[in-house]
Amino acid sequence: MTQLTVTDRRKLTAIRAARLFDGTSSHLLADPVVVLDGAVIRSVETGTGPPPGADVVDLGDVTLLPGLIDTHVHLAFDAGPDAVGRLLARTDEEALAAMAEAGRASLRAGVTTVRDLGDRGYLALRLRGRADQPAIVAAGPPITSPRGHCHYLGGVAEPTEYGVRKAVREHVEHGVDVIKIMASGGTLTPGTHQHLAQFDAAVLRAA
């Protein structure tokens, strides 16, 4: 491998640790050196020294691993007993601040990518790309039926083919990354039930 130096890169940082789990090997790799060029990983080596002139961060007796991915989060909800009530009591700016703190908590736990499958008013889209946040794959308000599961998040659509197509178009125009449809009820919405469909199969196919 070509030796990296600070003369041909803008900024190199070498992270050292006792062990590394690379996500593919069946064993931990000893004495790893992870070389960063800014925010980009340029190399992962074991049993070698850092590039000449690089800033070295020695984490000691720890295990490095790739960033974790959480494929189903709701940054707008907290983990308390009345998450819905607290969200409804917040202004959009208050909700956004709470969501940002939830994103930072994810980063502190090693989660570097989250898929947010339901916010209010497309707030999660405003957090995308921020340096203090994980990478966010955002759905915006989940598409649901009138008085359906999570209707209070604002994604209500008429349960017709035209209605869901219109809702999907609106979400796409807002720039969402993924579409979330509440096909059934859920525990966070009284009067709805997980075993009962909110849209029939033809409507879901039309979406």
Rank of each mutant, 00 (worst) to 15 (best):
residue 38 G to I: 12
residue 40 V to W: 04
residue 41 I to W: 14
residue 45 E to K: 10
residue 46 T to Y: 08
residue 46 T to Q: 15
residue 48 T to I: 09
residue 48 T to Y: 07
residue 49 G to Y: 04
residue 49 G to L: 03
residue 49 G to F: 03
residue 49 G to M: 04
residue 50 P to A: 09
residue 50 P to I: 02
residue 50 P to V: 02
residue 51 P to E: 06
residue 51 P to D: 06
residue 51 P to F: 11
residue 52 P to H: 06
residue 52 P to F: 03
residue 52 P to N: 11
residue 54 A to K: 03
residue 54 A to P: 01
residue 55 D to H: 14
residue 55 D to C: 05
residue 56 V to L: 09
residue 56 V to K: 00
residue 56 V to H: 01
residue 57 V to G: 00
residue 57 V to K: 01
residue 58 D to G: 01
residue 60 G to L: 02
residue 61 D to V: 02
residue 62 V to M: 00
residue 62 V to P: 06
residue 63 T to K: 02
residue 63 T to Q: 02
residue 63 T to W: 01
residue 64 L to F: 05
residue 66 P to F: 01
residue 67 G to A: 03
residue 68 L to P: 00
residue 68 L to F: 09
residue 68 L to S: 06
residue 69 I to D: 01
residue 69 I to E: 05
residue 70 D to G: 12
residue 71 T to P: 14
residue 71 T to G: 15
residue 72 H to C: 07
residue 73 V to R: 12
residue 74 H to W: 10
residue 74 H to Y: 13
residue 74 H to N: 14
residue 75 L to G: 03
residue 76 A to S: 10
residue 76 A to T: 05
residue 78 D to T: 05
residue 78 D to W: 04
residue 81 P to Y: 03
residue 82 D to V: 07
residue 84 V to L: 05
residue 85 G to H: 10
residue 86 R to L: 06
residue 87 L to E: 15
residue 87 L to T: 14
residue 87 L to V: 14
residue 87 L to N: 00
residue 88 L to A: 04
residue 89 A to D: 13
residue 90 R to E: 03
residue 92 D to T: 06
residue 93 E to A: 12
residue 95 A to D: 02
residue 95 A to R: 01
residue 95 A to P: 00
residue 97 A to Q: 04
residue 98 A to K: 01
residue 98 A to Q: 08
residue 99 M to R: 08
residue 100 A to S: 15
residue 101 E to K: 13
residue 102 A to Q: 14
residue 102 A to E: 07
residue 102 A to M: 09
residue 103 G to Q: 12
residue 103 G to A: 14
residue 104 R to F: 12
residue 105 A to D: 13
residue 108 R to I: 14
residue 110 G to T: 12
residue 111 V to F: 07
residue 111 V to H: 06
residue 111 V to T: 14
residue 112 T to P: 05
residue 113 T to G: 13
residue 115 R to G: 10
residue 115 R to L: 04
residue 115 R to M: 11
residue 116 D to T: 09
residue 116 D to Y: 06
residue 116 D to S: 09
residue 118 G to H: 12
residue 119 D to H: 09
residue 119 D to N: 09
residue 119 D to G: 10
residue 119 D to E: 12
residue 121 G to W: 08
residue 121 G to A: 12
residue 122 Y to A: 13
residue 122 Y to R: 09
residue 123 L to I: 11
residue 123 L to A: 11
residue 124 A to P: 00
residue 124 A to I: 00
residue 124 A to K: 00
residue 125 L to T: 00
residue 125 L to Q: 10
